[in-house]
Design a protein around this nucleic acid. Structure first.
Ligand code: FES
Ligand code: FES
Lengths: 159, 159
DNA sequence: ACCTCTAGCAACAAGAAAAGTTACGAGATA
DNA sequence: TATCTCGTAACTTTTCTTGTTGCTAGAGGT
């Protein structure tokens, strides 16, 4: 792209890793969109810039969820059906970033108090993580697309 | 304290919020320690510095879990029994910082795809958070102290 | 051939968040 | 009064993430 079409919003904090949410959004869009989506288009949609998009999508490409093609008419396309992609798949394709913002300490590995504390916390986190992973594994992008369709119908009806 | 006794470790990344883990450690220590613990002592133990300790402990004090006293012989003391403090209490006293490192997007609040995505994610997060909170609520600091005692016995025996 | 469009990549800049640090004030105790 | 201790505000440092720039290479169209 020669003309600037990027970066409406100049930064704006980002305490969270919202890549998962963003990528899901993009993937569903891609499914309903004939032809390839360029990094510029996607960047525009996400209010970010094309290089960041490529960086993020690279993970999905490496795991075989999307394909990228260079040159005129190139861009990003889905490599699988939405039915065959779960939320967990995408989470992992993004490098399985840390789920929890709360961490343990390793200041005194010998300290029995620290051990007791860490043990209790890790137990709790593991349990919560298991629940989250199970949920993620059980939802496919097709499910999300269906949810979208329902919302769409709902709105059409109300009008 | 006139002499420097702080800061062995000069920073060292801290991707996580480890205040919960640290405070639990400190509180249990305080229980087994006669007399007040000064911010300097605690800072030393946590490899941080006294101002940070005060900042963090302030939350616990405001919620009535610890007391602080100025002047010679002052410092921090427990205001409750360990039995009456749960992990959840401390988490909340620390301001209930965000549990998850993964977030949603608000780029297109009108967009039905984004709504569907966010809906699925928030459901999953809520479920996981409920599990975590339940766990935190069910564990008291006295439980941790007991765990500590067991570990201690275990080691004594092995020797 | 040449031009344009596209991703890939590396290197650098910028912004924000959290922790660390410094400095000073206010009680408390000896 | 001297000293110890927390309370607090202001400033600095460190680290992380994202944004930005510049270049290469491949794919088509003209
Ligand atoms: S550092 Fe002393 S028991 Fe934790
Ligand atoms: S921005 Fe177009 S549907 Fe999400």
């Amino acid at each position: 792209m020669s003309m600037a079409a990027n970066s409406k919003r100049k930064f704006e904090a980002m305490r969270n890793d919202s890549r998962l949410s963003r990528m899901l959004h993009v993937l569903i869009h891609m499914d309903r969109h004939k032809g390839a989506a360029t990094s510029d288009m996607i960047a525009n949609m996400l209010n970010t810039n094309p290089v960041v998009v490529r960086r993020t999508m690279a993970g999905l490409r490496d795991q075989g969820y999307v394909r990228s093609e260079k040159g005129r008419g190139g861009g990003w396309t889905l490599a699988r059906k939405l039915e065959d992609i779960s939320l967990l798949d995408i989470h992992q394709a993004l490098g399985a970033p840390p789920i929890f913002a709360i961490g343990l300490t390793e200041d005194h590995p010998e300290c029995l108090v620290e051990q007791a504390v860490n043990s209790a916390l890790t137990d709790a986190f593991k349990e919560a993580e298991a629940v989250l992973v199970a949920r993620f594994a059980g939802v496919t992008l097709a499910d999300l697309a269906r949810d979208f369709d329902q919302r769409f119908e709902q709105i059409s009806k109300c009008r």
